[in-house]
Design a protein around this nucleic acid. Structure first.
Length: 750
RNA sequence: GGGUACUUAGCUCAGUGGUAGAGCGCUACAUUCACAUUGUAGAUGUCGGGGGUUCAAAUCCCUCAGUACCCACCA
C-alpha cells in the first residue's frame, strides 16, 4: 500500500510538471503515438494493460531521445457493444430501451459511460501511462461529431454513399436488428426437406392443371405429371425452412449440373403458390450440398439475397418482423414460423412434392439475449462504395512499416477483395446519420434544415468515426482548413500527422486499421501512421481467449496491488513480441511478476550498496549530484576508460564495454519495438553481469570502482525508465533530488 | 470452405543458417558480506513426425499431424 501511494505521488509530480504534455510550439522533432481508444463497455483487462504499457514505453523512450512526444489518449463509444452491455444492466432493474424511451435512456447511458470512463482513468494512472491528458478525446465529443459529419458529407458529395437493401439479422422477440457480436450459435436437430418443383413446359400446360389459377389442388399434381409423362420434369431442392417457399423467386443450379442443366432458362413452378420462377446457373451454389440446386429466397437469406441481386430477382417476404407469416402465405398468414413450417410440410406431403426428409444437425444463429432463432430480413441500410478507397490504400500500403511484416499482405488481400461497407446501425448510441427527409426530399445536414424535416433514425457504424481517429483527434477538418489558408507551423495536424506509432490487437485489423488507412489516404492523401504494431493476444492456458462469460480474465489491478506496477509492466513486456500470442494463467503471470518484483528489489539493493553504503573515505568524491550528474560522471568514466591497461582495472573496461553493448542493444530493440528483447537484455546485464560479477569483485577496490559503479547504475536507471518508470524515477530522485529522470537524455555509448 | 500463426527443458516462452537459451520448478552446497525477494554449482531437450536444399538447419523449402485464432458460410 505504501508503494502504491509513493507511485501515485510520482505520477502527480510528473503531471504537475507538465512532463506528459506535447508542445506543438517546441522546436524539437515530433514523435506521435495514438492510443487505440478502448471500448466503453467494462474495465480494462490484462490485454489492455499490455497494450498501454507498450505504448508508454515507446513514448518515454522517445521523450528521453529528445523528441516532442505526443501520446494522445481517447475512448471509443463502441455502439453495439456498449448498447448490449448497457441494456443488460438495465434488464437487471427490469428496464429496457422501449420502457425508458429515447431521452431518459440516453441520459442514463451517459451516466453509465461516465462510470466506465472513471475506471479507465484509474487504470491508466496506476499503470503510469504518460499520455497528454489535456488532449483526451471521446468519440462522441463535439469535435469528433464535426469530423464525422464532414466525413459523411464529403463522401456523400463524392457520390460514394448510397442507400441499399441489405440483409440484417432480426430477432423477432426483441423486435430489433441484431449484430454478429450479439448472436450465438446453437446446434439444432432439424429436418431437411427435399422438395420437387415441377418444370413449366410452355407447350403442354393445360388449363386443367390450374397452373394459372389461384391455388392448385395440390394432390392432383403427381397424377397430372404422370398423365402427361412429365415425371422427370422437375428439380429437387433441399431446404430446412420450407415456410419460406412462399417467397421463392428463382432456382439456381451449379454450372453444368448433370441432371438440371437442361432446365436452365426455363421456369419452375412454386409448389405452394404456383408462381413461375426462373431457373438459372450460379457458381455460388455448392455442387455437393443438397441436390446441387438451390431455391432462391432473397428476402430471407443472405446468400440468396446476393444471388438474387445479381439476377435481378424481386425481394419477397413470407415472414414479417414479428416472426409471423405474411399475406404471401395465404391461409397461413399470421402463423408463427414453427407452426407454419409444420403446416407447409403437411401441404407438401399432401401434394406429393416431398421427395424425402432427412434428419439434419446444423448450427442455427440465435439471439444472445433471448435465445430466439434469428431471422434474416431485408432492410434498407446505408453503404459506402469502397472500391476507390481500397485501391488508393493498396497503392500506399508499402509505406507503412507493419509488425509483424506479413500484415502488409494480409491487409492487401482483404483490400483487394473489398466489398461495400454498411455504415448504418439500428442503434441509439452513436453518431446519428446526418440525413434529413421531407417527403421525397433528402438533405445532408448537421442540424435540422427547417420545419417538417425528419432525421434518419439510424446511427453510424462505430468504425465510421473511429476510422477517422488519426485525423479527427488532431482537429481535422478545422485545422486542415486553417493550414490551407496560410501555413502555420504550430498547426498540430501538420506537425503530428501521420502518426509515428500505432498499435492494436490483430482482431480489428480490418474493422479499424484497414479503414484508417483508407480514410486517411482519402481525406488527407497520406498514410495514417508510419509504424503499425500488432501485438499478440493474451489467452488462457488452453489457448482460448479470455472472456467475461468464462470468468478466466485476470484483472491488472490485482497484479499491481500484489507486485507493483513496474513488475507487472515487466511481466507484460515479456509477452509483447509482435504478433505472438501468450498463454497464461493467474499462476503463471504471478510467477513472472514475482520474478520482476525481485528484480526491482535487486535494483534497490544495488542502489543501497553504491550510495548509502559508500565507504567514508570516498564520501566526498566528485560524484555528488550536480546539474546533470550523468554528464559529469560520464566525463570521469570516460577518463577511467581511457587509462592505460595497468591503471584502469580490467573489470572496469569490461563492464563499460558490456554496458556499451547493452545501450546499443536496448536502443536498437526499442527502435524496432522489440520490447521483450530490450527488457531481457537489461535484466541479464543488471543482475547477472553488473550485480553478480562486477559489484562482487569491486568490493576489494571500492574507491577506485566508485565512479564506474555510479555511472553504470545511473545509465541503467535511464535505460530502465521506459519499462520501470516508477522505480527508476524514485531512485533517480534520491541521487539527484528535485530532478526527474524523464527529462534526462537517453544514454549514449562511451 | 478461405486465410494466418504456432508446435523448442516438467510449465510459460525467447532465439530464425554456424558449439541448444531465459524465467519458474527441480538437486546440492553456501550465507553475521547491498540483497534469502540471495549467491554458487548442477541435472533435464533426437528444437512435433517425415523428406529436401546446404560444408552446416530449431532456423530455408516441401509434406504430414496436432493446436489456436481471424474471415466467410452452413440451402
Amino acid at each position: 500500500m505504501d508503494e502504491q501511494t509513493s507511485e501515485q505521488k510520482l505520477y502527480d509530480f510528473w503531471e504537475k510538471a507538465g512532463l506528459f504534455k506535447a508542445d506543438p510550439k517546441s522546436s524539437k522533432k515530433p514523435y506521435s503515438l495514438l492510443m487505440p481508444p478502448p471500448n466503453v463497455n467494462g474495465d480494462l483487462h490484462l490485454g489492455h494493460a499490455m497494450q498501454q504499457s507498450i505504448l508508454d514505453a515507446v513514448a518515454r523512450f522517445k521523450r528521453m531521445q529528445g523528441f516532442d512526444v505526443l501520446l494522445l489518449p481517447g475512448v471509443d463509444h463502441a455502439g453495439i457493444i456498449f448498447e448490449s452491455t448497457f441494456n443488460k444492466e438495465l434488464a437487471k432493474e427490469n428496464l429496457s430501451k422501449q420502457k425508458l424511451g429515447y431521452d431518459s435512456w440516453m441520459k442514463r447511458a451517459w451516466k453509465f459511460k461516465e462510470k466506465i470512463y472513471n475506471s479507465f482513468h484509474n487504470t491508466w494512472t496506476f499503470l503510469g501511462i504518460s499520455a497528454d491528458w489535456s488532449r483526451e478525446v471521446f468519440t462522441l465529443d463535439p469535435k469528433i461529431q464535426q469530423a464525422t459529419f464532414v466525413e459523411f458529407k464529403t463522401l456523400w458529395e463524392q457520390d460514394l454513399i448510397y442507400k441499399g437493401a441489405y440483409i440484417v439479422e432480426w430477432c423477432p422477440k426483441c423486435n430489433t436488428a441484431i449484430e454478429d457480436v450479439e448472436m450465438e450459435y446453437e446446434e439444432r436437430k432439424e429436418k431437411l426437406y427435399y422438395v420437387k418443383y415441377q418444370i413449366q413446359n410452355n407447350n403442354v400446360i393445360p388449363a386443367e392443371a390450374g397452373i394459372h389459377g389461384s391455388r392448385i389442388i395440390s394432390q392432383r399434381l403427381i397424377v397430372f405429371w404422370t398423365k402427361y409423362g412429365m415425371t422427370d420434369q422437375f428439380i429437387t431442392i433441399a431446404t430446412a425452412r420450407p415456410e419460406t417457399i412462399y417467397a421463392d423467386c428463382g432456382i439456381a443450379v451449379f454450372p453444368n449440373h448433370p441432371k438440371f442443366a437442361k432446365f436452365i432458362g426455363k421456369f419452375a413452378i412454386n409448389p405452394l403458390n404456383n408462381n413461375q420462377i426462373p431457373i438459372f446457373e450460379d457458381t455460388r451454389v455448392e455442387k455437393d450440398f443438397g441436390t446441387g440446386a438451390l431455391k432462391i429466397t432473397p428476402g430471407h437469406d443472405p446468400l440468396d439475397f446476393a444471388i438474387g441481386k445479381d439476377h435481378n430477382l424481386p425481394i419477397l417476404h413470407a415472414i414479417d418482423k414479428l416472426g409471423k407469416m405474411t399475406d404471401l402465405a395465404g391461409d397461413l398468414q399470421g402463423l408463427k414460423i414453427a407452426e407454419a413450417r409444420a403446416k407447409v410440410a403437411e401441404i407438401l406431403e399432401q401434394n406429393g412434392t416431398i421427395e424425402k426428409v432427412e434428419e439434419y444437425t446444423h448450427s442455427v444463429p440465435v439471439c444472445e439475449r433471448c435465445k430466439t432463432t434469428v431471422e434474416p430480413l431485408i432492410s434498407e441500410e446505408w453503404f459506402i462504395k469502397m472500391k476507390p478507397l481500397a485501391e488508393k490504400a493498396l497503392k500506399n500500403l508499402d509505406k507503412i512499416n507493419f509488425l509483424p511484416k506479413n500484415y502488409d499482405k494480409i491487409l492487401g488481400d482483404w483490400l483487394s477483395g473489398i466489398h461495400d461497407w454498411c455504415i448504418s446501425r439500428n442503434l441509439w448510441w452513436g453518431h446519428r446519420i446526418p440525413i434529413w427527409y421531407k417527403g421525397n426530399q433528402i438533405q445532408v445536414s448537421k442540424d435540422s434544415p427547417g420545419e417538417d424535416w425528419v432525421q434518419e433514425e439510424k446511427v453510424l457504424d462505430t468504425w465510421f468515426s473511429s476510422g477517422m481517429w488519426p485525423l479527427s483527434t488532431l482537429n481535422w477538418p478545422s485545422s486542415a482548413k486553417a493550414s490551407e489558408g496560410k501555413p502555420d507551423k504550430s498547426d498540430e495536424l501538420e506537425k503530428y500527422f501521420p502518426w509515428d506509432f500505432e498499435l492494436t490487437a490483430p482482431e480489428i485489423k480490418y474493422l479499424w486499421i484497414a479503414r484508417q488507412i483508407m480514410l486517411s489516404l482519402w481525406f488527407k492523401d497520406s498514410i495514417p501512421f508510419k509504424n503499425m504494431f500488432f501485438h499478440g493476444t493474451l489467452r488462457g492456458i488452453d489457448g482460448k481467449k479470455f472472456s467475461k462469460s468464462l470468468g478466466n480474465g485476470i484483472n491488472p489491478y490485482d497484479l499491481v496491488q500484489l507486485w507493483g506496477v513496474d513488475a507487472t509492466r515487466m511481466a507484460l513486456y515479456s509477452y509483447s513480441a509482435p504478433g505472438r500470442d501468450g498463454r497464461t494463467s493467474r499462476q503463471i503471470i504471478d510467477e513472472r511478476c514475482r520474478n520482476y518484483r525481485n528484480f526491482g528489489t535487486k535494483i534497490k539493493n544495488i542502489y543501497r550498496f553504491i550510495y548509502e553504503l559508500k565507504p567514508k573515505e570516498i564520501a566526498t568524491s566528485p560524484t555528488a549530484p550536480r546539474n546533470d550528474i550523468s554528464t559529469t560522471l560520464g566525463t570521469d568514466v570516460i577518463a577511467i576508460r581511457q587509462l592505460p591497461e595497468k591503471q584502469s582495472h580490467i573489470d572496469n573496461k569490461k563492464i563499460l564495454e558490456e554496458l556499451n553493448k547493452t545501450i546499443n542493444d536496448v536502443t536498437k530493440n526499442l527502435e524496432s519495438f522489440q520490447l521483450h528483447l530490450a527488457t531481457e537484455t537489461l535484466y541479464e546485464f543488471i543482475w547477472h553481469k553488473f550485480a553478480d560479477v562486477y559489484i562482487e569483485k569491486s568490493k576489494d577496490r571500492r574507491a577506485e570502482a566508485q565512479p564506474v559503479l555510479e555511472y553504470v547504475f545511473q545509465t541503467c536507471l535511464k535505460l530502465l525508465h521506459p519499462f520501470m518508470p516508477f522505480l527508476s524515477e524514485e531512485l533517480w530522485q534520491k541521487i539527484a533530488p528535485g530532478e526527474s529522470i524523464m527529462t534526462k537524455n537517453w544514454p549514449k555509448t562511451i
